[in-house]
Simulated assay, not measured.
Amino acid sequence: MKIKEAIKIINSTKMVRAGLGKEEIYFYADGVDRSDYFLVMPQKANNWDNVEEDFEALYSITPKDLARVMDVIQRLLDTPVNERFPEKKYRLRWIDDQGHYKNYLNLNSNGAWVFVDDEIDAEIFTESGLEQLKKDNPHLAPAIDAMKEEVKGDED
Score class of each variant (00 low, 15 high):
2 K>S: 04
2 K>R: 09
3 I>C: 04
4 K>I: 08
4 K>D: 10
4 K>R: 10
6 A>V: 05
6 A>T: 05
7 I>R: 05
8 K>M: 06
13 T>C: 12
17 R>L: 09
18 A>W: 02
18 A>D: 03
18 A>T: 05
19 G>D: 14
22 K>Y: 09
24 E>Y: 15
24 E>N: 12
28 Y>F: 15
28 Y>R: 03
29 A>V: 08
31 G>D: 07
32 V>L: 04
32 V>N: 06
34 R>F: 10
35 S>G: 02
36 D>R: 12
36 D>S: 06
36 D>Y: 05
37 Y>P: 03
39 L>S: 12
40 V>C: 12
41 M>Y: 11
42 P>I: 10
42 P>T: 12
44 K>D: 15
45 A>Y: 07
46 N>D: 14
46 N>H: 13
49 D>S: 05
50 N>P: 00
54 D>N: 15
57 A>E: 15
58 L>Y: 02
60 S>G: 13
62 T>I: 06
63 P>C: 06
64 K>H: 12
66 L>R: 15
67 A>E: 15
68 R>M: 14
68 R>G: 01
69 V>N: 13
72 V>S: 04
72 V>P: 04
73 I>D: 11
74 Q>Y: 13
74 Q>N: 14
74 Q>W: 13
74 Q>H: 15
78 D>I: 01
83 E>D: 14
83 E>W: 14
85 F>Y: 15
85 F>N: 02
87 E>C: 08
88 K>P: 05
91 R>G: 07
92 L>R: 11
92 L>W: 11
94 W>V: 09
97 D>F: 12
99 G>C: 06
104 Y>C: 05
105 L>H: 11
106 N>P: 01
106 N>F: 09
107 L>K: 08
108 N>E: 04
108 N>A: 04
109 S>C: 04
112 A>D: 08
112 A>S: 10
113 W>L: 09
114 V>K: 07
115 F>K: 10
116 V>R: 03
119 E>T: 02
119 E>S: 07
120 I>V: 07
121 D>Q: 11
122 A>M: 03
123 E>V: 01
124 I>H: 02
126 T>Q: 06
127 E>G: 02
127 E>P: 03
129 G>M: 03
135 K>W: 08
136 D>T: 05
136 D>N: 11
137 N>H: 15
137 N>F: 12
137 N>A: 13
140 L>H: 09
140 L>P: 00
142 P>A: 11
143 A>Q: 10
144 I>E: 08
146 A>D: 06
147 M>Q: 07
148 K>W: 05
148 K>C: 03
149 E>S: 03
150 E>P: 00
150 E>V: 01
150 E>I: 01
151 V>R: 03
152 K>D: 00
154 D>E: 00
155 E>M: 00
